[in-house]
Amino acid sequence: MSTVILLAATGLGLGALYFLVASGLSLIYGLMGVLNFAHGSFLTLGAFAGWEVARRTGADSWWTFLLSILIGAAVGALFAAFTEFVLIRRLYQRHIEQVLITVGLALATVALFEGIWGTDPVFIQGPAWFKDTTELLGARIPNDRFVCIIAAVLVLLAMVLFLKRTRYGMIIRAGVENRSMVTALGIDVRKAFTLVFTIGGAAAGLGGVLASHYFGYVSPLLGGSLLIFAFIVTVIGGLGSLTGAAVASVAVALLQQFANFYFGLGDLAVVLALALVLLFRPAGLLGRKS
């Protein structure tokens, strides 16, 4: 029983990270039709920024951790906004070229990160409490899992509130459904494009800092390895659906953890789940049927 609880908690923590990446991916794809391969780089840069903060201000205080989260999210947001504004916008409506640009950006930035911080993982320390465990129903669960889960839930709530309660949120929801009709109401939908990139980048940057504590290290490849699972999550959840991304993040991460523990086949189980979803629900669990 305690094993199941531990696996579930670890899976939820991982699911939280997937969600932080997939939520932005899904919103960006839903609104703009852009598959963003550079999203992993937003995450990696956020993680390195958080690590630099921790390294410079004394690693183990809670203030440092909070600051590193803020800086990581801000760096991810800035990088993402820059990407949209300088590179993606020039290729408005040309989706294949937009993907190619993000692929090129991912290649170039990962190489640059390797040049700056080296190819080996750099290890990171957080507040001492992270290393402790909390006993829950007989299982000893590392505390950093709870931090990831709480952060992801807060981000989900903030995003839902933003989408439901603000005018830009309304524009984004309408644009995901029918972008050309939004422009036909006299709204410049491109402002919303920059905005979703910024929000997605902030979530990814935040996810980067949390991922570095979850895994205990930062490496230039951190973002890329999470990105592939985030892609799977967005397809399973339904492209463009925030709720779908949340549900699928948890489902995929739990499946992966349990399949890994009992059969050693976590990654394959995830791909199999993807194949099944595509065969029976090509639009994803909560996606639009088109």
Partner: peptide, 23 residues
């Protein structure tokens, strides 16, 4: 030194430039 010592950085940048300016 750092950008020049990463072949993939140069190739990735070249790739972006080709997509943008030499379709």
């Amino acid at each position: 030194r750092i950008p020049l010592s990463e072949p993939l950085f140069i190739l990735g940048t070249l790739f972006i430039l080709v997509v943008l300016f030499l379709p």
